[in-house]
Design a binder for these strands. Structure first.
Length: 477
RNA sequence: GCACGGAUGGCAGAGUAGCUAUGCAAGGGAUUGCAGAUCCCUGGACCCGGGUGCAAAUCCCGGUCCGUGCUCCA
């Protein structure tokens, strides 16, 4: 069964056509003017989930995401710091890439940058001017909305008239070079001291929207299968792209499928710098670690808004901890086996696949994963190593390959090694302490027993009083 | 104001007509002390008002509330 994905354009779930040679995916990436925030992480994880799922199903995918490495915000930041704008951009791009690695976001096949795509941008603008869709104003080149009014509202359902009236009257009057306030900039003439590139329309820099049209074209040609980004980009950014690409290359639709991920709120409010409730990716990783952050992000389906708060993180931490702990107790991924014929695991698999095929419902996937973790813990405690290794195999595939929630195998094995090494080191000591504690308990000397328990706890060991005496395991891994 | 999306148990969050979602929290039990950990069990929900159906959280109509967007700004 192929993937059915919600298409913003039709507002329906539609099957992704995987019959071609490969599926092409383009996601609008970040503008690197400040440290990346968890909203960026969510966008990246959402598209990573899409890419992972298709590849897991054996579909060839080519995935491209960009960096908008020139913008007013970057120029402002560079002025503030007194450094070159590229230094600002490069620093944040590099931080972003490191964070993505920690979050198990697979590398894209290409990371085009605006500053490296100027030729393609200029040539598109030239074509749009030749075709009469764009005009040169006094401070830049603008796309003229009235040349393609039928393209209005493809994603947001707004009509030309609605936007003409303009945001309930909040929009200021038409800017300097524009004929109509709904027209948007393709090229901005540089002010003195601003970074600029030569062009037939004067020295300047690209407008915000044209870059993505140009980069999609450079990597995928006239059409892309799936295009998207955060839902805040639907208007005006993605609608502007539709105007530019479809008019420039005489193609329709420019993107066969539009995918948009939901936003993140913090404690019920919109996340913003002015409210002081801003979480950078680094903040979140420092607080709970990258895998727990990813867990929190895939715990909700990608289109749902997420309310980011302490409860969410605690929940994610607890559940993700159980996942890792159960795998380590079973000896790590090295012990993995197939699970064919194990009915409970096959059922969990079927349900997960059905969920993922239905618009990447990672919430259902997590629920099934949790049920397998439960089975694994039971298998661990009853020493059923066959069942345990089947569960580990299942988790390696679905929690690992599909959801990206497991550290790489080497790291995991190192954890297993560290735990078992430490366990061997303190085994004799712990077991003699446990015996002493049992003696104390038999004499009902609770004070002594509790003292010994504290001592054991200090070694990083958890005691579990069970019906066949006390067992113990390592607390940390 | 307009557009799009949403409203499910204490919380997060699935489910689109009849069948346990899942996890956390809560309650009960087991583990012959307490705490913890572990295991077993349980209760509890479908924003409001109408309508269609044998049957509605699920479909239709109306309302309320919330989120996002509404231009040169992710």
């Amino acid at each position: 069964m192929p993937l059915r994905l919600f298409n913003t354009s039709s507002r329906m779930k539609e099957e992704i056509d995987v019959s071609g040679e490969e599926v092409t995916i383009y996601a609008c990436g970040i503008t690197p003017y400040s440290p990346s925030h968890i909203g960026h992480a969510r966008q990246a994880v959402a598209f990573d989930t899409l890419v992972r799922w298709l590849r897991f199903q054996g579909v060839r995918v080519r995935y491209v995401t960009n960096f908008t490495d020139i913008s007013d915000t970057i120029i402002d930041a560079s002025k503030g710091e007194g450094v070159d704008f590229l230094e600002v951009a490069n620093r944040h791009i590099s931080d972003y890439r490191i964070s993505m690695k920690h979050l198990n976001v697979l590398d894209a096949d290409a990371y085009p940058r605006v500053t490296e795509s100027i030729d393609g941008i200029i040539s598109m603008i030239e074509t749009l001017i030749e075709k009469g869709n764009a005009y040169l104003g006094e401070d830049g080149v603008y796309f003229e909305i009235d040349t393609a009014p039928e393209k209005y509202g493809r994603l947001t359902g707004q009509t030309l008239e609605m936007v003409r009236s303009g945001a309930g009257g909040r929009v200021a009057s038409t800017g300097a070079g524009k004929r109509d306030h709904r027209d948007f900039a393709l090229w901005k003439i540089a002010k003195p001291g601003e970074p600029s590139w030569d062009s037939p329309f004067g020295k300047g820099r690209p407008g915000w929207h044209i870059e993505c049209s140009a980069m999609v074209h450079e990597h995928f040609g006239r059409q892309v299968d799936i295009h998207g980004g955060g839902s805040d980009l639907m208007f005006p950014h993605h609608e502007a792209e539709i105007f530019q690409s479809e008019c420039c290359f005489d193609v329709q639709p420019f993107a066969k499928h539009w995918m948009h991920n939901g936003m993140i709120n913090v404690d019920g409010e919109k996340m913003s710098k002015s409210l002081g409730n801003f979480w950078t990716i680094s903040d979140a990783i420092d607080a709970v670690g990258p895998m727990v952050l990813r867990y929190a992000l895939v715990n909700a389906p990608y289109r749902q808004p997420i309310d980011f708060n302490q409860v969410l993180l605690d929940d994610a931490e607890k559940n993700h901890g159980r996942l890792i702990e159960s795998i380590i107790s079973a000896g790590g991924i090295g012990e993995a086996k197939r699970w064919d014929g194990v009915e409970s695991l096959v059922n969990a698999e079927n349900s997960l696949v059905r969920g993922m095929e239905d618009d990447l419902n990672t919430r259902v996937a997590i629920a099934e994963m949790q049920s397998v973790v439960k089975i694994l813990r039971q298998a661990n405690s009853s020493q059923d190593s066959l069942m345990a290794s089947a569960c580990v195999g299942w988790l390696s595939a679905y929690a690992g390959d599909v959801l990206g929630l497991l550290p790489d195998e080497e790291t995991l094995q190192r954890m297993v090694g560290r735990v078992s090494e430490r366990r061997d080191e303190i085994r004799d000591k712990v077991e003699s302490l446990i015996m002493m504690r049992e003696d104390a308990r038999a004499e009902r000397n609770w004070e002594e027993a509790d003292k010994i328990r504290d001592e054991i706890s200090e070694l990083g060991v958890v005691i579990e009083d069970g019906d066949s005496g006390a067992t113990w395991r390592m607390k940390e891994f």
